[in-house]
């Protein structure tokens, strides 16, 4: 008796479905991609890093480079426009902060009111290190402590009993 593989329908149907799905996916991707021309690879690099560090004001937790929201698209256009105008990264970031506030910065600036934010992790490492050092030191002191005569006698007895058994 010949063994027959379980029926899989028409093989061509599967290929057509697969192809359709793939084409649809391609179309969706094409819609999301904006074609931009850059004067130099350096400018393109700056564009990529700016759109990755500016946060979309509408979407809580996406960089403008990752977001499909209309305001993120407008902001990308502005970044591109200003890069071509020869503005510096700092000027572009200031421009955005002036309009949308510090919220758009994924890297908050180091200033008076962000000192706690930037300083706390370092301070915690220092405090944690000191605590660890103190604990290790006190433990070590316990371990070198001499046994009292009473404790020594009990230890000898225990060892003795162990040997005999």
């Amino acid at each position: 008796m010949a063994l027959k593989a379980p029926s899989q329908g028409h093989p061509w149907l599967a290929s057509v479905l697969l192809l359709t799905g793939w084409l649809l996916a391609l179309q969706v991707m094409a819609e999301a991609i904006e074609v931009r021309r850059f004067e130099s690879p350096v400018t393109e690099q700056r564009y990529q890093s700016l759109t990755a560090t500016l946060r979309c004001p509408k979407c809580e937790n996406q960089a403008i480079g990752d977001s499909n929201s209309p305001i993120a698209a407008d902001m990308r256009d502005k970044v591109y426009e200003q890069l071509n105008d020869g503005r510096s990264d700092k000027e572009i970031i200031d421009f955005m902060v002036q309009r949308f506030g510090d919220y758009v910065l994924y890297n908050p600036r180091l200033e008076g009111r962000t000192l706690l934010l930037w300083g706390l992790p370092g301070a915690l490492v220092v405090v944690g290190g000191l605590a660890l050092w103190a604990i290790i030191r006190s433990r070590r002191r316990v371990s070198v402590r001499q046994l009292s005569a009473e404790e020594q006698a009990r230890l000898d007895e225990l060892i003795d009993r162990e040997r005999r058994s």
Binding site: P57, K58, S69, I71, D74, R99, F100
Partner: peptide, 8 residues
Amino acid sequence: GFDLGVYG
């Protein structure tokens, strides 16, 4: 709208 920082 952009200069006003409008995002919606």
